[in-house]
Design a protein around this nucleic acid. Structure first.
Length: 426
DNA sequence: TGTCCACTGGAAGGGAGGGCTT
DNA sequence: AAGCCCTCCCTTCCAGTGGACA
C-alpha cells in the first residue's frame, strides 16, 4: 500500500501532520481549567443566591442543636442554581456538623434517573452499604421489604439523615406519591435516627398530583429560586471564566453575549455555562488565540444541533419509523396531518421493513412523546363532525432526519420509499 | 339542538426480562 | 428449579370530547 504512494507524497503528508500538531501545540492555550464550566462543579461562592442560602441554612440549622429540621420544598426553573445551592449548603452543613460532632448523612438522589419508588428506597439503603453490609439489587425484592430494611439501616445509629430528592416531580408523575407518604412519616417509626426530606422540582404544578397530607408535610418550608437575569448571569459567568480561561483569551463581548442568549432561555445558567465552554472549545479547535462573539454564535448553533441529533439517534425503533412517516408526509406536502394519516403511513413503513406495527393507541402515546421532545408539534384539535384528532407538524428538517437514519442499518431501506408509489401498491 | 365523527386518554392487565429467595 | 417481585412495553376496552353539520 505504502509502495503506491510516491516518496514526495509521503513527505508532503509528513509535513502536513507536523503542521497540524505544531499548530495545536503552539496555539495559545484557551482553557486554564475547563472543569469549572461543567454543571457538576460546585463553586466556592454562589453569586446572587445569598438569600436562598441563608433561608436554607435557617431551615437546616436545628440539626446542629439536635433537633429535626423541617422538610423543604425547593422550586425554580432549570438552571436557576437549585441543585448547586443545595449541594453547597448540605456540604457546609456536613462540615460544620463534623466540627460539632453531630452525625449527619446527606443522601442525594436524582429522580430523573432513579424514578421508581423501589429504586429510591434501594438507593437509600445502598448509601449505607459499607456500614450495614446490606445491598439491595436493582430489582427483585418486594418493596415493603426494602422499606423495612431502610428503616433498620437508617435507625442503626443516632443521626440525622437528609434525603435530597432532585427532580422530584419526575418521580411523582411516574410512580405516584406513596413513597413521599412513607418517607414524610418515617420519623414516627424510627427510634434513634431522624429523617428530613428536601424535594427539588422545576415544575410547580406537580403539587397538584400530591395528596394533601403529603403536600403539607413536604412543604413545611418552601424556598423559591427565581430565574437569573442577564446581569446576574454575567456575574456568574465572569466568576467562572476567571478560573476557567487563561488571561486575555476572552473577548470582552463574549460573556455578555452568552449571558444575554441564556437570559432569553428563561435565565438558564447551565445554558450560559455550556455556551461559554463550547465557544472556548470551538476557538481552541480553530487554533484561534481569542474567543470571540462569532464563536459564541457557532456554539449556540452546535448545542442546538447536537441535542436534537442525540435525541433522534436514541429514539426507540418504532418512534423512529413513526418520525420517518411524518417526514415523508412533510415531503409530500401533506402536513399538518392527523393521527389517522400518520398511523396509516407508519403501518405501511413497518410492512416495508418487516416490522410488526403497534396499535394506534400506542402510536398515539409515541406521538405525544415526540411532541414532548420537541421533534414534532402535536396539537389536539376538533374538526367538528370530522372528529377530534391531533394536528401534527414537523419541527426538524427532513434532511437532518434522513442524514441520521442513513447511518442506521435497520432504517436505511426506508430512505428509498416513495410514498405515492407505496400507496398505489396497497 | 341533537347527532356523529375520529379520535383522545385513562384503566386494567398481559407477558417478557431481569433478579431475588427458598 | 420454582415461586415471587418489579419494571417496561404493549394491547384491549371504553367513556369522553369539541365542534361541524343536518
Amino acid at each position: 500500500m505504502v509502495g503506491c504512494i510516491s516518496s514526495g507524497a509521503v513527505w508532503a503528508m509528513a509535513d502536513y501532520i507536523n503542521s497540524i500538531f505544531e499548530r495545536y501545540l503552539h496555539a495559545k492555550k484557551i482553557f486554564k481549567n475547563k472543569e469549572v464550566l461543567r454543571h457538576s462543579y460546585t463553586p466556592k461562592e454562589l453569586p446572587h443566591r445569598k438569600e436562598q442560602i441563608e433561608e436554607l441554612a435557617h431551615i437546616l440549622v436545628p440539626v446542629l442543636r439536635g433537633e429535626t429540621p423541617s422538610n423543604v420544598f425547593v422550586y425554580g426553573k432549570t438552571g436557576t442554581g437549585k441543585t448547586v445551592t443545595i449541594k453547597f449548603v448540605t456540604e457546609e452543613l456536613k462540615r460544620i456538623s463534623d466540627k460539632y460532632n453531630v452525625p449527619v448523612e446527606v443522601i442525594y438522589i436524582n429522580c430523573e434517573i432513579v424514578d421508581t419508588q423501589y429504586r429510591v428506597l434501594a438507593n437509600i439503603v445502598n448509601h449505607f452499604k459499607n456500614e450495614s453490609g446490606v445491598e439491595v439489587p436493582l430489582v427483585g425484592w418486594p418493596t415493603d421489604e426494602v422499606y423495612a430494611k431502610l428503616k433498620d439501616v437508617i435507625d442503626a445509629e443516632e443521626r440525622f439523615v437528609i434525603i435530597v430528592l432532585d427532580e422530584i416531580d419526575k418521580l411523582i408523575k411516574k410512580s405516584g406519591d406513596d413513597i413521599l407518604y412513607s418517607l414524610t412519616r418515617i420519623n414516627t417509626e424510627l427510634k434513634r435516627a431522624k429523617v428530613s426530606i428536601i424535594g427539588i422540582s422545576n415544575d410547580l404544578k406537580f403539587k397538584e398530583y400530591l395528596d394533601a397530607r403529603v403536600l403539607s408535610s413536604l412543604s413545611e418550608e418552601e424556598v423559591v429560586f427565581p430565574p437569573y437575569d442577564a446581569t446576574q448571569l454575567k456575574d456568574i459567568l465572569l466568576q467562572r471564566a476567571e478560573n476557567a480561561f487563561n488571561e486575555g483569551v476572552l473577548d470582552d463581548a463574549v460573556v455578555p453575549l452568552c449571558a444575554a442568549l441564556a437570559a432569553r432561555e428563561h435565565g438558564d445558567a447551565r445554558r450560559a455555562l455550556d455556551l461559554l465552554r463550547v465557544a472556548g472549545e470551538i476557538a481552541e479547535r480553530e487554533g484561534a488565540g481569542k474567543v470571540t462573539e462569532r464563536h459564541v454564535w457557532l456554539a449556540q448553533e452546535k448545542i442546538e444541533q447536537d441535542t436534537m441529533e442525540e435525541v433522534i439517534k436514541t429514539l426507540p425503533l418504532h418512534s423512529k419509523v413513526l418520525l420517518y412517516s411524518i417526514v415523508l408526509l412533510d415531503e409530500n406536502g401533506e402536513l399538518p396531518a392527523n393521527t389517522g394519516d400518520v398511523y396509516s403511513v407508519y403501518t405501511t413503513l413497518c410492512e416495508y421493513i418487516d416490522l410488526d406495527s403497534l396499535t394506534q393507541r400506542r402510536v398515539s402515546d409515541l406521538i405525544n412523546e415526540l411532541d414532548m421532545l420537541g421533534i414534532i408539534n402535536a396539537k389536539v384539535v376538533s374538526k367538528g363532525r370530522y372528529g377530534r384528532t391531533k394536528e401534527i407538524r414537523l419541527n426538524v428538517t427532513p434532511h437532518k432526519v434522513k442524514k441520521i437514519f442513513g447511518q442506521d442499518d435497520q432504517l436505511r431501506p426506508l430512505l428509498t420509499v416513495n410514498l405515492s408509489r407505496q400507496r398505489r401498491l396497497i
